[in-house]
């Protein structure tokens, strides 16, 4: 190598995560009024293009960040999970607004009380609806997460570790009560 040409040492993580964090393509799962704020977040005034996320991808194959904006019904939950499963790894998820995070004001039988019951959520945004700058804040949190915590090694984890069962199994609840190891209905009542 010519000694007059400079070179730089770095890690693959630093380069790949820099690229990933600055080109997050959101999958806009707009379900209710939060979706309007999400549009403002992508629009010219708040201009998320500054963070490289202006390309909303309505195809899950091309997206790596799902923004669930709005209340999610039990019927819609299955469609959301299906879209999430179709997204290519690595992927992140934002629960935007009170309804997506916890059910919000929709405390009723038809609305899922927080999408973290079936999706691995990385960032929750409070607000009803949250302002677009809050959504940008959440996006920056995701970027921080990618730069500091994510590693390309996780993309290539395979074999024993990937064949191992997930960390936690969902508890099954039937009309008779909780049917799972751990706490049962009686323990719940006793507490």
């Amino acid at each position: 190598m010519d000694s007059n040409t400079g070179y730089l040492t770095t890690t693959v993580d630093a380069v790949v995560n820099w690229a990933r964090s600055n080109s997050l393509m959101p999958m806009p799962m707009g379900l209710a009024c939060c979706a309007i704020e999400m549009m403002a977040f992508a629009g010219p005034k708040y201009d998320v293009a500054r963070f490289g996320s202006e390309a909303m991808r309505f195809s899950p194959r091309q997206a790596d960040l799902m923004i669930v904006a709005g209340w999610c019904s039990y019927k819609m939950a299955h469609a959301i999970r299906r879209v999430w499963d179709q997204m290519a790894d690595p992927k992140w998820c934002i629960a935007m607004g009170a309804c997506a995070s916890s059910g919000g004001m929709h405390r009723c039988y038809g609305v899922v009380q927080g999408i973290d019951n079936f999706l691995p959520v990385d960032v929750y945004i409070p607000g009803c609806p949250p302002r677009p700058d809050t959504v940008i804040h959440a996006l920056m949190d995701i970027q921080e997460n990618i730069r500091n915590e994510y590693s390309v090694l996780k993309d290539y984890q395979s074999g024993a570790q990937r064949l191992a069962p997930p960390e936690s199994r969902p508890m099954m609840m039937t009309a008779e009560g909780v049917a799972a190891p751990g706490q049962g209905v009686a323990a719940e009542v006793a507490r």
Binding site: Y74, Q113, P120, S168
Partner: peptide
């Protein structure tokens, strides 16, 4: 997931690489 409050009971959906 049959429990509508799975998250409140400690169930946490795993990340895709897990």
């Amino acid at each position: 997931t049959m429990d509508p409050f799975a998250a409140a009971r400690g169930s946490k959906p795993v990340k895709s690489y897990q």
